[in-house]
Structure formats: C-alpha cells, structure tokens
Amino acid sequence: MITVENVDKHYGDFHALKGIDLEIESGSLTALLGPSGSGKSTLLRVIAGLEIPTSGRVILDGKDVTNLAPQQRGIGFVFQHYAAFKHMTVRDNVAFGLKVRKKPKTEIKDKVDELLRVVGLDGYQQRYPSQLSGGQRQRMALARALAIEPAVLLLDEPFGALDAKVRAELRTWLRRLHDEVHVTTVLVTHDQEEALDVADTIAVMDAGQIAQTGGPRELYDAPVSDFVMSFLGPVARLGEALVRPHDLELSVDARDGALEAQVVRVVHLGFEVRVELLLAQAGEGAEPVVAQITRAEEQALELSAGDIVWVRPVLAAA
C-alpha cells in the first residue's frame, strides 16, 4: 500500500503539489489522470524518490520512505521515453537491476529469459534498443522494471510516445499483465480513455490537487465538479448545467425544462446518431451542443438540418 500524506512540492515560485493526500491499495492499478501541468508526474516522481517533496510524507507498505533514495525504495519505474540503456543489449538492459544486486549469473539468465517471454520479447535478447520499435522498447523497459520484483510499479505516461494503435494494444496487454503479476501499479496519463480502460481506481488531478478519487464508473457517473466531469468524457453545456451527450432527450414539441434549439447537422455513426444543435438562447458564434441518441430515436424524430427541436436532460440524469 502506498500512502501519500499532505505532500507539498515547490519549484521556486511554482507550487506543483498542494497538500496531496492519497492512498493506493496493494495490488491495485491506479491511474493519476490530469491535464499537463496538473502535477501528476511530479506526484509519481515523489513516490519514486526521484523528487523530494518540500513537505509531507510518503509511506510504502508501512515504512516512511520520504527521505530514502530511489535505490532503496524497491520500486520499478517506467519512463515515457523508455530510458533504455542504448549501449546494452535487451538482455543486459533487463538484467541491469539484478547485476547491480550481484545475483548469480544463472539466476539472472533464467529470470531475464522468463521476463522476456512474459513481455513477448523472447528471441530479442541480443538486439540493441535501437533495433526495436517503440512498443517493443517500452515492453523491454517494463521487463527491466519488473526484474527486481518491485513492491510498486510506477509508469510515467508509458504509452505517450506511441501511436494510437500500439497504445491501445499495449494498454490491454498491461491490464492482462497486471492481472497476472498483481504488483501495485500507478500509471500517470492525460488520456481519460486510457485511465477508464485500464485502471481500477482513478485519481483526477487539477492544478496540483486531487480533484476526486474513485472507480471509473463512480467518477463518470458522479463527478464532484465540472472539471472532473468534463475531463472524464464528452459533455454538453445546457444553460448552466453540464450534461453527457447521451443524457440529452430531444423532442419535437416543447416540454418542461426543455430548451429550444435548431438542428445544425445529423451524423449517423451506425447504432448511434450524433445531433449537433444550436440553442436558440445562445449568442452568435456559440459552439453547437452535441446530443447522442440511438438510431431508433432519430428515426422516430425524423430530424434533418434546420429543424427546430426541444432539448432537455434525461430526467434520471438531471
């Protein structure tokens, strides 16, 4: 279990972390989610010992490690840009942590071979990092971090430098790997889809503070603030209220609490239909509101561009 207690971090005048309190369950996969500059990477580096907090404490499995060097924390860290040892083969990269611990050679070899099998790089032992693709390099970096059997695995935007397809593959793979290895994992990301897809728990960060912590569903359904809501998925602004596009109800006649709007565009996306609306009360140049409805609903309404409709939040979600 990782406990972060009232951690503050200043860089000169910049207040990067403001009184962070966070508990991370053993064996869980937690995502620190936030926009860039929200302090999520700084928090991860404080847990790793790569940054020393200005005040506050970090406790790993009941032990206060605030003043311990990263070497002594028993952590595995994966960097966004891999931080591969370029002059070493894949085998030597993965073996690094074991070699500096002076483990017996045969033990190192077996362990490295096993890990490379786990991450799907068996047969690449003699390659150099420059001969691997980005996704392969990151899997090598993961094997390297796992080799020392860390109590905690920390991933700093691990898929940030990869293209969208590899990214989606790797996060599915990471989730499966986590279910096998069960190491407490903290993942930093700015991609809400990645966080929702992979993590058991998400801590949403904003301007150096934790805005909300909870399961993906809890955060999506019951966000505590407009910030959390708009960061965790698409939103539509209806007057003062923020609503999810799929929680909007359209009708051709005026109903209680509904606002008048004109259809700008109807986009058919298979089962789902996206309707772009311009609210009558909105001023010139306002962003259209997007409503997401099913094909059946759309067929019942028979919408086309220019129609006038009434829009309100679905009652259950209001």
Binding site: L50, A83, R144
Partner: peptide
C-alpha cells in the same frame, strides 16, 4: 533519464557512472 532509471533499479551513483554514464 537513463541515470534515473539506473537509480530506480538499485544502482549506486558509482555503479550508475561506470555502467551507464561512462559507456
């Protein structure tokens, strides 16, 4: 970053210098 990675893997500054920085 490579030096930080070495540190998280348990290498002392001396080991990091000889095994990572110098090469």
């Amino acid at each position: 970053e490579q030096e930080q990675a070495a540190a998280t893997l348990g290498a002392s500054s001396w080991q990091t210098f000889w095994r990572v920085t110098l090469p």
